[in-house]
Amino acid sequence: MAHGALTLDHEPVTGIPHGKLGMWIFLATEIMFFSGFFATLIVMNHANPGLFEETAQKLSWQLALLNTVVLISSSLTMALSILNLERKDTKKFQLFLGLTLLGAFIFLVVKYIEYSGKFALDITPETNVFYACYFLMTGFHGLHVVGGIVPMVWMLGKSFTEAGYTNVGRVEVLGLYWHFVDLVWIFLFPIFYLLYNPTLIIF
């Protein structure tokens, strides 16, 4: 290199590529972030005995179940898109990444329907602490979904250019993130929609 500087880059000492290692660490910070919310939820439940059971039924578990299916499927298509990029099968990579993106959009649209349904019933974060927790946690989860959409659009867009998209490592890192977003929802779904809903007797 110019200026007489040496390139000192070498194989990552841990054997894990920087991006993947960084994403794992970042996910650790994300776990702490959502832990703060879950702790709040627990405290609110204890401070307001009976409130959650009384008020939770107004949430639509049907819509949430649909979203759960959508999000889990998008995790699967995400994994398949990585697999196909590894195999250099561009067409299928685009197909599966596109499906993942579609899943993310469907999730947000369903979320939008859900939220506007709540607003129509005059349910807002002001209603009570249960709904405050609900909007807080599903809201920040939704922001994380948006955060996944941005790089997906970028990668997909780039894969249609002449140069194409070949960086398997990056898609893999995005996949890690996407599975995490999925995982958070796997916690949110039963907690908000099933656990406190007395009409669902199995819980």
């Binding site: 650790a28 910070t29 776990i31 702490m32 972030f33 959502f34 703060g36 919310f37 709040t40 807080l136």
Partner: peptide
């Protein structure tokens, strides 16, 4: 910082 700051972030979000 990685384990503590996110909890502050959650607190501020609330």
């Amino acid at each position: 910082a990685a384990l503590g700051t996110p909890v502050l972030a959650a607190d501020l979000a609330i």
